[in-house]
């Protein structure tokens, strides 16, 4: 890789691909965007706000998530939770992920 910036872009692309699965896996109980961001970070997956919020909106448009506004501590917060369709898609995505991991392990061994 010619320079650090290009390498960073490749890393970003790699991470971007897994954020959908990571977000869906953590939304079996409802969470607002910032709490999900912190939860993912606590578990070692740093996600940029500029990536996560538009992604949550997109997943909602695709029917994989549902959201509801709630007033908490005098602050409105948008809570997201996995939808019935999302629950059906999650095991398939997990299986796909397991296959990718297995293939990549072999390739990188």
């Amino acid at each position: 890789m010619a320079n650090t910036e290009s390498l960073e872009n490749v890393v970003l692309e790699l991470r971007r691909g897994v954020i959908v699965l990571a977000a869906l896996s953590q939304l079996s109980s409802e969470q607002y965007g910032y709490s999900l961001l912190k939860q993912l970070a606590d578990q070692g997956l740093q996600v940029d706000q500029g990536t996560l919020y538009p992604l949550l909106r997109r997943l909602e448009t695709q029917g994989l998530l549902e959201s509801v506004w709630k007033l908490e501590e005098a602050r409105p917060r948008r809570y997201y939770i996995i939808s019935a369709e999302g629950k059906k898609a999650l095991p398939k995505l997990k299986k796909e992920w397991a296959e990718i991991v297995s293939v990549m392990k072999n390739l990188l061994a």
Partner: peptide, 16 residues
């Protein structure tokens, strides 16, 4: 959903 985006952004920034 423009208002929704603004509302969510404000709420996140206030949390932060």
């Amino acid at each position: 959903g423009r208002e929704d985006i603004e509302k969510e952004l404000r709420s996140t920034l206030e949390d932060m």
